[in-house]
Amino acid sequence: MGVREGFEELYGAAPEGVWAAPGRVNLIGEYTDFNEGFVMPLALPHTAVAAVSRREDGVLRLHSADIEGPVVELRVDELVPLTNTSWAAYPAGVVWALREAGHATVAGGADIHLASTVPTGAGLSSSAALEVVTALALNDLYELGLTGPQLARLSQRAENDFVGVPCGVMDQTASACCVEGHALHLDCRDLSIRQVPFDLASQGLELLVVDSRVKHALGDGAYAERRAGCEEGARQLGVTHLRDVAYEELDGALERLTDERVRRYVRHVVSDDHRVEQVIALLDAGDVRAIGPVLTDGHRSLRDDLRISCPELDLVVSTANASGALGARMTGGGFGGSAVVLVESADVDTVTKAITEAFAAAGYTAPRVFPAVPSAGARRVA
Rank of each mutant, 00 (worst) to 15 (best):
119 P>S: 07
88 A>K: 13
108 G>S: 01
22 P>D: 13
67 I>P: 00
301 S>R: 02
360 A>Q: 07
208 L>V: 07
239 V>F: 11
271 S>N: 12
61 R>T: 00
92 A>N: 02
69 G>W: 06
370 F>Y: 15
233 G>M: 14
17 G>R: 03
237 L>N: 13
62 L>F: 01
178 C>Q: 04
243 R>L: 15
355 I>A: 10
165 V>Q: 08
311 P>S: 00
245 V>L: 06
160 N>Y: 06
159 E>K: 11
244 D>E: 15
97 A>F: 01
309 S>W: 04
192 S>T: 10
121 G>Q: 02
344 E>Y: 03
315 L>K: 01
3 V>C: 09
305 D>V: 08
250 L>V: 13
382 A>I: 05
344 E>R: 12
80 V>R: 12
255 E>Q: 15
92 A>I: 06
278 Q>Y: 08
272 D>K: 02
136 L>S: 03
257 L>V: 14
92 A>G: 12
372 A>Y: 10
62 L>W: 03
14 A>L: 15
313 L>M: 11
373 V>L: 11
265 Y>H: 15
62 L>N: 15
48 A>L: 08
44 L>C: 00
167 C>P: 09
73 E>K: 08
143 E>H: 10
293 P>D: 05
340 V>I: 14
93 G>T: 13
362 A>Q: 04
226 R>D: 01
274 H>D: 09
286 G>M: 13
41 P>Q: 13
117 T>W: 09
210 V>Q: 04
214 V>Q: 07
11 Y>D: 01
101 A>D: 04
242 L>Q: 07
335 F>S: 05
141 L>W: 05
129 A>Q: 05
153 R>F: 10
114 L>N: 01
198 F>K: 03
178 C>S: 14
361 A>D: 15
93 G>A: 12
363 G>V: 06
261 R>K: 15
338 S>L: 06
200 L>M: 11
224 A>C: 09
164 G>F: 02
103 H>K: 10
57 D>H: 12
355 I>V: 10
192 S>Y: 02
20 A>N: 06
106 V>H: 03
1 M>D: 14
339 A>C: 15
320 A>E: 05
117 T>Y: 13
351 V>S: 14
286 G>T: 13
327 G>I: 00
345 S>R: 15
21 A>K: 05
138 L>V: 02
95 V>K: 09
40 M>E: 09
332 G>D: 04
70 P>W: 09
290 A>H: 11
298 G>P: 15
381 V>G: 05
101 A>F: 07
271 S>W: 11
108 G>E: 13
165 V>G: 05
11 Y>R: 11
143 E>F: 11
151 L>F: 11
31 Y>E: 06
269 V>H: 09
352 T>I: 09
115 A>T: 09
314 D>H: 08
165 V>N: 07
188 C>K: 01
275 R>G: 05
58 G>L: 01
358 A>N: 08
242 L>P: 08
191 L>W: 08
143 E>P: 07
20 A>H: 11
65 A>Q: 04
310 C>G: 01
362 A>K: 14
289 R>E: 14
48 A>N: 08
35 N>I: 01
179 V>I: 04
210 V>W: 08
90 Y>V: 14
305 D>I: 04
351 V>G: 04
377 G>V: 09
69 G>Y: 03
326 L>Y: 02
294 V>C: 00
23 G>Y: 07
171 D>C: 02
285 A>M: 12
374 P>W: 06
291 I>Y: 13
82 L>A: 05
238 G>E: 10
220 D>W: 10
